[in-house]
Design a protein around this nucleic acid. Structure first.
Lengths: 338, 338
DNA sequence: CTGTTAGCGCTTTCAC
DNA sequence: GTGAAAGCGCTAACAG
């Protein structure tokens, strides 16, 4: 099928040895100007490109990063992937993308598939199932083999690796504090992802701030997987006359906006809404949603930078870091009282 | 850093030759039961896995597909990627994902990067710039080398390869016809991607149907790259008292909904809206948007299936096909008169 | 300045 | 039943 020019063929045609051709292509000072020129000319005539596989086998570097994501339809991860891909490609690395669909089993399969030896390192966000069952043996194997790895967003402290996260607790505190500052007294937090590490931190932050404000009450709605989110939220909003909602994930937040409108609640006069969301969803909702931006693209970029740094300047006694990317509250018209 | 067990080491430890070990692991009938057992035991003790690079170099198959996408933040492509990844991984293939960001130059770089020889085949959706300048030489090189390739959604007829597309013209016709059937007389088509092949087909379809209905008028708004889409659309809706809009891309459609509300137009009493959109955006807009679904996931899956079929049963005289995936109009509450 | 050689880890043919 | 040897395409140490 595909027949590609090799050093061997160039060498034969030029009546040179393979190694001379190889060195010439690298403009090795050992080789005469004239030979270098001849070699380059024939090489570009045939559009010669070294076989990446052979180079990798020799050098045991693939210039490839394995990226393991729980989802891709979620805008957060799409954006993170975008950041990772950008950083990687700018540094001459490719990425192979694996989507676990929140499955622990698939995560294990992917890690095993990529470890032999098609990638130089990993960037991973844990699947929901992995976080629930808390079985990390597949990553322990990687660490034992000293494979560079950085986790982002969905991380664990049980594996010693670099981490890039958002300060979810702080972000949540700020959001709740902002609601309190603008006069809200009866605040709801709503989410369908309460099992995730990130959601737990957001919940904790919300509780902490409300605990410090005795005149403010906090009501929590955790929609279970499989429940009909829309109707659960609608019911909840009907039964609890809250004056503010913090949606802990994009979907919950967007649904809160729509259901409030449906129930005839005026935003922001009757109800203030903030969401953890970055996506188009919130930019194009009406009214536009005030959001806690997690800067997913930056998270991804940063994770890639840290990994690339490890790949390029590897040293035996590497110290692991946890980097916290700042979130920000992006105020958008009219989901908040002034 | 990473020290992996090789056949060589197993062979040494077992006092066997490399080839015997290799055959044993494949349960070759030439080898004695006893040896096979010993080998398997030691192999699983060391958790031996063959080095993928070496296998690939030998077989010149990488079990990897190169996926070249113009964007990933666009839900359509995220969904297509999801479909591709799913199909690929179910068949033991990995994907390397490249995002051109609509740049022709990056597209060329990626194709060259992957062609030597890290992927077995390509799945590509052309970048906007490539469609505009219509320079396809990088793909011609691939075809000359007989590299399996399938294009989807953003395709060209100038390269002889498999294609998976949506019948954009038909879809557009159906949408416009639906608007006409529900009594709309002054219809607008709005888009910010008028340069793309897909948009051109949608425009053509709309024109064709309206031409056949003399009492219906069609008004077109093509927002240029770089313009402020929101205000352009707002201005347009203010100046043209249309009773229906077909948004040719998700963003345009969502903005039409929001701007109509902002301008006090009642949906669907004053204005009916349909959009080419699959995303959460439309599912969670309020009122929910009626959409032409492009079934992006199926497009991706199908593209992958066709490519995998080529990779697995390759024959010299392969006939190229263009497959058309059906679209469907998904009616959602209240953006359309009944 | 150029060539020989060994080797990355594996598969496969051919001897023994 | 088992092993030696060649080769995938490349790099690099070492000879000449």
């Amino acid at each position: 099928m595909r027949k590609k020019v090799t050093l061997k063929q160039l060498a034969k045609e030029l009546n040179l040895s393979i190694s001379t051709v190889s060195k010439s292509l690298k403009n090795d000072s050992e080789i005469s100007e004239k030979t270098i020129k001849r070699v380059h000319e024939l090489a570009s005539f045939y559009n010669y490109k070294p076989n990446a596989l052979a180079v990798s086998l020799k050098s045991s570097k693939t210039k490839t990063i394995g990226v393991i994501l729980p989802e891709i339809l979620n805008h957060f991860f799409a954006e993170a992937l975008f950041g990772i891909e950008k950083e990687a490609s700018e540094n001459g690395y490719k990425i192979v993308t694996c989507i676990t669909n929140e499955s622990h089993k698939k995560e294990i399969e992917y890690v095993e598939m990529l470890n032999y030896s098609s990638v130089d390192g990993f960037i991973v966000a844990l699947s929901q199932e992995t976080q629930v069952v808390n079985d990390l043996s597949h990553f322990e194997v990687l660490k034992r083999d000293n494979v560079p790895m950085v986790m982002f967003d969905r991380v664990t402290n049980d594996i010693d690796c670099d981490r890039v996260i958002v300060d979810d607790m702080e972000a949540s505190k700020n959001a709740i504090q902002h609601l309190i500052n603008t006069g809200c007294k009866k605040i709801a937090i709503i989410t369908s992802i309460s099992a995730l590490s990130v959601a737990k931190l957001r919940i904790e932050g919300a509780r902490e701030v409300t605990a410090m404000n005795p005149d403010v009450s906090l009501i929590e709605l955790f929609v279970k997987d499989g429940d009909d989110i829309e109707s659960e939220i609608e019911k909840f909003l009907e039964n609890h006359n809250v004056d503010a909602v913090l949606g802990l994930d994009e979907t919950s937040a967007a649904i809160c906006v729509n259901m409030s409108i449906k129930l005839g609640r005026k935003i922001p006069e009757d109800i203030s809404i903030i969401g953890f969301a970055d996506g188009l969803l919130s930019q194009h909702s009406y009214p536009k949603l005030t959001v806690v931006s997690q800067h997913a693209k930056d998270l991804g970029r940063r994770a890639a930078q840290i990994l690339l740094n490890q790949l390029i300047n590897f040293s035996e006694d590497y110290k692991t870091t946890t980097e916290i990317v700042k979130t920000s509250l992006i105020l958008r018209d009219s989901t908040l009282r002034q």
